[in-house]
């Protein structure tokens, strides 16, 4: 495994009410798009993200927040593990559903629906 030079992590969770996948933004809000996610570049900032996530979980906004590793691709974060990458897309066998479909319809990135 490659030596981890620096931390690149974002915080993800599922919304309590509808279960949809969200990412924590710089403004401590939740966005459905990983592109909007705040990227922690140090252990300290990752812990801080995690802390904010736990507060949101305690406030019953989200369920099970956790940090995931990302790489930057064309200046955008992309989940490292396939499991997490699929969570930013939707089922690969139904590209008409999930985030990938909304993305195709122009729904992603800055200006997407914030919660």
């Amino acid at each position: 495994m490659a030596v981890k030079k620096d931390v690149r992590q974002v915080l993800t969770a599922n919304l309590l009410k509808d279960g949809l996948v969200v990412f924590m933004t710089d403004g401590a809000a939740w966005s459905p798009w990983i592109e909007d996610a705040a990227i922690a570049t140090s252990k300290e900032s990752a812990l801080e993200l995690e802390g904010r996530g736990n507060i949101a979980a305690k406030a019953n906004v989200v369920v099970g927040p956790y940090l995931i590793d990302v790489i930057e691709e064309n200046g955008r974060p992309r989940a490292n593990l396939i499991r997490e990458h699929l969570r930013t897309l939707g089922p690969t066998v139904r590209t008409d559903l999930g985030k990938q479909a909304e993305r195709a319809a122009g729904g992603s990135g800055q200006g997407g629906a914030f919660i």
Binding site: N14, D18, G19, L20, L86, R87, P91, G98, K99
Partner: peptide, 16 residues
């Protein structure tokens, strides 16, 4: 969690 599971409700990758 155990209460919702006893009614078949899971939290999966993309949604419930």
């Amino acid at each position: 969690r155990p209460l919702r599971l006893m009614n078949g409700l899971y939290l999966q990758l993309h949604a419930y």
